[in-house]
Design a protein around this nucleic acid. Structure first.
Lengths: 350, 350
DNA sequence: TTGTAAGCGTTATCAA
DNA sequence: TTGATAACGCTTACAA
């Protein structure tokens, strides 16, 4: 059974003053002298008083809580993003309510609904794979709750957006493959109702165009974020009459599948086949050969998302009108799988 | 600016009935007939009414929120545990407020303080490495908040405890090494003010005793959870006059360091040196050779922690008096690093 | 500088 | 079956 807590009334009674006055003293209201503030605070500590957020929230209509909605809490990209969000929020005296959608649209709608109910001040969200549009986010805005989308977003919804420079980063990765002398580069992407995957593919196309190379359609039309599925795709391409000499994939798990296909077929990586992934999953550095990948700076992405809310907190106009898009620049991690010049132990020294 | 929300008064006015009645109807109070319930619910949907948790919480003194305190959100063990907790909580209509301590005692005390202030119904916590005792948890109990400690706990605090069978699992891992013919097994453990590390060491000792082997003191006194540090420890031991022929470590990162030391010294694994880690980090299956490890079932551990709260929710006596300890059995994942008979590709098929 | 009254949106209790 | 009242603990506006 929950205990009855000490309230400002208890403190007021103990000091023979009025509860309102206690409230003001605890909030260090300017009209109250220091002596009284100290006295009240001392008594509060003595009685183990704790401020009751609910009562205050009910009164002020602000909860100092940020809602976070992500597909899976325990995927490294998201858990890192959450860690970044948590850090910034706790610095600003806010708390986090976290929901996971398990990539389900239905759960996402429920989560958003719940967070509105919980009266959160702000929602930071990354859309599920199933989500085709962000119409359910209109309700967030309609309730005057700040909205920040990160990584997987719907740009038709008026909100802050925090994302990577996916197109440019993909371009840099492909450029690196070209510089290493790979010519027949195949791409394995992600579902293209999500902007990030369109962008990554676009970056791939950009570089292929710039290099004035022509590649067959089969190199560009594959979509898979999964290991096993990508392995099959890679096997098929590598066994075709016109096999690629490199793969760029929109996810590290797809790259892992490609690497396995290369092993299946006894194709040397990076000598005969270059591989470049995307995401910087922890395992990439432990593979043999180590896997080149794009570091999305997920923690910074999360931190920036939260910062965006706090830096615009006192600016109603910006929150509702001047939403902007922030870009976090990815960095390339070139490891053995794409670097013909590199030698080294499979476990890099850190 | 937050919008004013639709309240039960708005519904009441629209239907020309009393707000109290609306509340009862929405909560499907038995004294209200179905017709009325439907009517009220329909109107509520029409007016986009959302139940205001704060007001209800203020009144009932229950928040339907579980506070979760973990050292680091983005460590796989904890992010998996959180995913498990989230799943069970959301099934039971509860939400999660998550705090990370970054292994700092000070932050842990603050987090607990904050959660009490937020009036959470339950706190699920795993202690930081810096935490020497759980006295700060007394406050949780004093406020009548349910307390569940998992993995890293202080048993002197009266609470539910959910943990792995660390001692037995460690024993099984060492037994496996012995069965493989390794005789001179060294141990690298964790800080021993935490029960889990005492237990893992104990499991190691148990098996060494049972096998009636004597091992030098230097094999048992090392403590490190870090890769680089463990590498140094392993190098020193392997270069000593009496080198071990196997390592059992309390963490996968320590095992990784040992594996690197073996590579540094060109010692064949598993032929000349067996290695067994603990935790089942994702990377273990991607190493060459793949690393044997103990799977802690972190998601189940989290889920069980939450279940414990819900299954005792209506039982005041149990919550406050009959706290018990639940054990989640670890499973052994024997990979190449400890299995002299195993051959295979470094990337296992899944 | 201090005190008073009202209200945030629910729900429990009691009355009709 | 429905209605009225009070209370949860805090803050804001205003009065003394």
């Amino acid at each position: 059974m929950k205990q009855k807590r000490t309230t400002i009334y208890d403190i007021a009674k103990a000091l023979n003053i009025h509860a309102t006055y206690v409230s003001k003293a605890l909030n260090e209201h300017p009209t109250i002298n220091q002596e009284m503030i100290d006295k009240v605070k001392k008594k509060a500590a003595e009685l183990k008083y704790r401020h009751n957020s609910f009562a205050a929230n009910l009164r002020t209509n602000y909860s100092k809580i940020c809602g976070v909605v992500v597909p899976k809490i325990n995927e490294s990209f998201f858990s890192n993003a959450i860690a970044g969000i948590e850090e910034v929020c706790s610095q600003n005296g806010h708390h986090l309510i976290i929901c996971q959608t398990q990539e389900s649209y239905k759960k996402e709608v429920e989560a958003v609904e719940t967070l509105i109910r919980q009266n959160v001040d702000c929602i930071i969200i990354s859309l599920s794979l199933e989500t085709k549009n962000g119409n359910h986010l209109q309700d967030v805005l309609a309730n005057g709750i700040a909205l920040i989308q990160f990584d997987r977003y719907d740009e038709s919804i008026l909100s802050f957006i925090v994302k990577n420079d996916n197109r440019e980063a993909a371009g840099r990765a492909v450029k690196h493959l070209l510089d290493q002398g790979y010519q027949k580069i195949a791409y394995i992407g992600g579902p293209e109702h999500l902007k990030i995957y369109i962008e990554r593919k676009q970056g791939f196309i950009d570089m292929i165009r710039e290099a004035q190379i022509s590649i067959p359609y089969e190199y560009t039309c594959n979509i898979s974020l999964k290991r096993e599925e990508s392995r099959k795709i890679a096997l098929e391409l590598l066994n075709s009459p016109n096999p690629p000499d490199a793969f760029f994939t929109a996810s590290d798990f797809a790259a892992l599948g490609v690497m396995q296909a290369a092993k299946d077929l006894n194709i040397a990586v990076p000598e005969k086949l270059g591989i470049f992934g995307f995401q910087n999953e922890e395992f990439t550095q432990y593979l043999t050969p180590t896997l080149s990948t794009v570091d999305q700076k997920s923690m910074e992405l999360g931190a920036l998302s939260a910062q965006l809310y706090f830096s615009n907190l006192h600016n109603k106009e910006v929150i509702t009108k001047n939403y902007k898009t922030e870009i976090v620049k990815c960095s390339l991690i070139t490891n053995q799988s794409s670097d013909r010049s590199k030698k080294g132990s499979p476990i890099p020294k850190m």
